[in-house]
Amino acid sequence: MPAVATQGLEHQAERAKSRQGFLLGLPAIVYLLVFFVIPLGIVIAYSFATRTRSGRTELNDWNVEAYRRLGEDVVRAVAFRSLWIAVLTTVVCLVLAYPLAYFISTRSPAVRNMMLVGVMIPFWSNFLIRTYAWRVLLDSDGLFTQMVSAVGLGDGRILFTSNAVILGLVYGYLPFMVLPLYASIERIDWSLVEGARDLYASGWMAFRRVVWPLSRPGVIAGSILVFVPSFGAFVTPAILGGNKKGLMGSYIVDQFLDARNGPLGASLSVVVLGVMLVGTLIYFRQGGRTL
């Protein structure tokens, strides 16, 4: 009998504790419900809604017209262009970041910390301004343009092209690649490399068979952290791409502000969100919590 009584008391105490936990979280729960979940619900509802002739979105006559329009050539072209630019950005970032992350990992702790701070400072500095810095460099009489033409590599005028957008995105998101790569390379047990070398593996072999496979979680994490924001980028194309060639981010914005096609803009937003969700799931599957 007494055993049952203590069990009941324990159960009660546990329930009181769990209620306390819920109450602590309650303000954030309510806030996110009102200012995040409901807005998301409205956007999803919009994607099934009807656009009137005047460009208003009316929440009735539910249909999948907006999703059908995603198959149109114009929309597909925008999606593929964004995809291509995001893939190229990711690859360039990986190629630039991997050797740097590797180099940082092989330094002494003091030098390592200093170099990491060197990577972090641009990462934390204002993104808009850092993008604008390239606008200045790429201007027709900017330093970059002058240097390229002086060296003789063409006229160096890449402003308002996809190349300028990729350059800007690489510049903006490179720290996102360096940091997870560093985190995974730094963790590698170097005695494994030593072992491979002792067994007559060449330096390149040891890298390909030991270091590269062990750093794969970092490669995947960094790639997703770069790919995801590049795909939906809005600021960089607007400043360096001149918005002449539509990318996903600016195309969605246009649907709401200029074309006044709420349902199409909403369905595109849902698609972009889907891409992000898939990317994030892969990220967590790889055990990535490096940032």
């Binding site: 995040f36 409901i38 998301l40 924001p229 939906g232 969605i252 803009g265 937003s269 992000m276």
Partner: peptide, 24 residues
């Protein structure tokens, strides 16, 4: 469920968040 919702604002692209707020 709360944990999952809490992650969404981090991964959601700026543009989608902006659209959500405008429409809301």
């Amino acid at each position: 469920a709360f944990d999952a919702v809490l992650y969404l604002p981090i991964i959601i692209p700026d543009v989608t968040m902006a659209v959500m707020m405008l429409v809301f």
